[in-house]
Structures are given as structure tokens and as C-alpha cells.
Design a protein around this nucleic acid. Structure first.
Lengths: 138, 138
DNA sequence: CCAAATTATGATAACCATTATCATAATGCA
DNA sequence: TGCATTATGATAATGGTTATCATAATTTGG
């Protein structure tokens, strides 16, 4: 959280309870929640929090490079407190989104770069299928 | 186009001039257009075509497995007449979306599968950067 | 080829996640 | 502490997409 405070200050952004709370929710979950989910999660502790503030704060954090926005193909965005590019897994059964821990794709940009004349700068990789729970429950 | 006709018939879907025209536009471009773009492209030859018909037809073709929908992070979807999964390149300068022709990612699912207990079924891969034109024009 | 049944089209309204607006409140610097 | 600046909260507006429904086109069985 000190990280967030110093980052905000370094960008001349104000440190507010709302920003701390929203980042805190995102930082302490692996669920990759949507703005609406974060808003609901904060109802208990921050009942006066506005949904607009959640949206604006997520935008601020995104532009500050602290979080990333995920577009997995649903009707709303999801967010990840880890801004480093990494592949995600989307369960087509329960709609859970999780990080895919693998080093297989570490050099995927270099590999792709070697076969194209595009100048590749970043990538977004999503895998779709059944998570460990759903593949057995089926 | 015979392909489309027989496919529609095999699914008990009616063969209409609108469906043929929309697929024809998509099949004869590499631009991965949005519904709106397809609608505009058809204004000249099919001035009575409704935007709603474009949307409904794209949905029909998608569900029939003839085309795929792309979510590159813009405010609207794009479409690809090639339903086979393949990586796409998005130019952050001119917003062009193009197919990335590479065999580097052919076995990407198998590689990722070997390091996770998820049952992976498909993937979406997008690279972002500068296309060959924009990287020189800078 | 015709007529009934079914499905598609076109026009428009509704939807809903996200963004914009703006008055008020909170933050941070001098 | 006081002031300038930025953020918040409430709500309206936006815009891509979907739903609705009367009319039109397609298909099929005779």
C-alpha cells in the first residue's frame, strides 16, 4: 500500500481513502473482478463509495501502470492488480478468470517478432477451457 | 459462397441476399471490419440493408462457426471470415488489425497445457505494436 | 408452380456498461 | 490554517449491441 501512496504522490495524484480501498480489494484477490464486483465488495466497508469513483479510480490506476484491464470477451472489463503482461485462463463453465503460471510464453514476443515485420510491443493471451474444478464436475 | 449456402441449408437457416452479401464483404477483405464498417461497405450495393440485419447475420455466422468475433480492446467488435484460431496483430498507431502469419504459435495450447491443470480448449492471442507502415512513418 | 408455414428483415426502442458533467467535499502545499 | 487544486458522489448522457414486432421473403409439401 505504501507503493500505491508513493506512486500516486509521484504522479501528483491525491491519496484518498477510496483509491486505497479500491486498490486494496484488487490486490487481495485472484478473481480478476469487474468494476461492479469491486463496488459490491466495498459496500460493507465503504457504503458511500460511488460506482463512478470505482470506474474513475480503475482508470487512474490503469493509466499509472499499476493495474491492467482485461477484456476476456464478457460484457464488462475485469481488472488485475498485476500489471505485468501474463496469460490468463478463462473457464467457459464457471466464467472464472485466473492467471496462468507458465514460462512457456515468456519469449513469445521474440518468437513472433522473428516471423513478422511488425514491431511488436506487447501481447494479450487468453486461454479458454475448463478450470480444474469444472473439468471434473463436468 | 456455395459453402455458405450449403452450410446455411444444413442448419435449416434461410439463404438470403443479405446473408450472402455480408459474408461476401467479410470474405473479401483482410481488414477485420466492425459491424458498422460492414454496414457502410454495403450502403452502395444494398442501400436498404439494416444495421440490425448486419448484427444478426454476424451473430448467425458466428454461431454457425463460419466466422469469428475479435475483441481487440476497441469499443466495438471486429470480425474475421477465417474462423480458425490464429493470432492477430493490432497496430497501436493506425488501429489496423491483421492476421499474423506465423507457425510459432501452432502448438501453443499444447505447451501451455503441459504446465497447467486446466483443460484448455481454445486461445485468443493479440499482439500490439506498430505495423510495417507505421513503424517507418513513426 | 402454389400456398401455407416458417424464418428473416427493417425500423426502432430498449439495454447496460462505461463516461461525462458538475456541485460539493477532501487533499495537499505554502 | 487557508487556498488552490483535484477527487468524490449523484446522475445524466453515450453508444455499441440486443430485443421487439409488424411486414416481407424463403422454403417446403402438395
Amino acid at each position: 500500500m505504501e507503493h500505491l501512496t508513493s506512486l500516486l504522490k509521484s504522479k501528483s495524484l491525491k491519496v484518498t481513502p477510496q483509491r486505497l480501498a479500491i486498490f486494496d480489494v484488487l490486490y487481495n484477490t485472484t478473481e480478476h473482478p469487474s468494476a461492479e464486483s469491486i463496488y459490491r465488495a466495498l459496500q460493507a466497508t465503504h457504503p458511500t463509495m460511488s460506482l463512478a469513483t470505482v470506474y474513475k479510480t480503475l482508470d487512474t490506476l490503469k493509466k499509472s501502470g499499476l493495474i491492467q484491464e482485461l477484456n476476456v470477451g464478457e460484457d464488462s472489463f475485469r481488472y488485475d492488480a498485476n500489471a505485468m503482461s501474463h496469460p490468463h485462463m478463462v473457464c467457459t463453465e464457471c466464467n472464472a478468470v485466473s492467471d496462468l503460471h507458465t514460462d512457456v510464453l515468456d519469449n513469445v514476443i521474440e518468437l513472433a517478432q522473428s516471423q513478422t515485420d511488425f514491431q511488436i510491443e506487447s501481447e494479450k493471451i487468453f486461454f479458454y477451457g475448463k478450470c480444474s474444478k469444472c473439468k471434473t464436475t463436468h
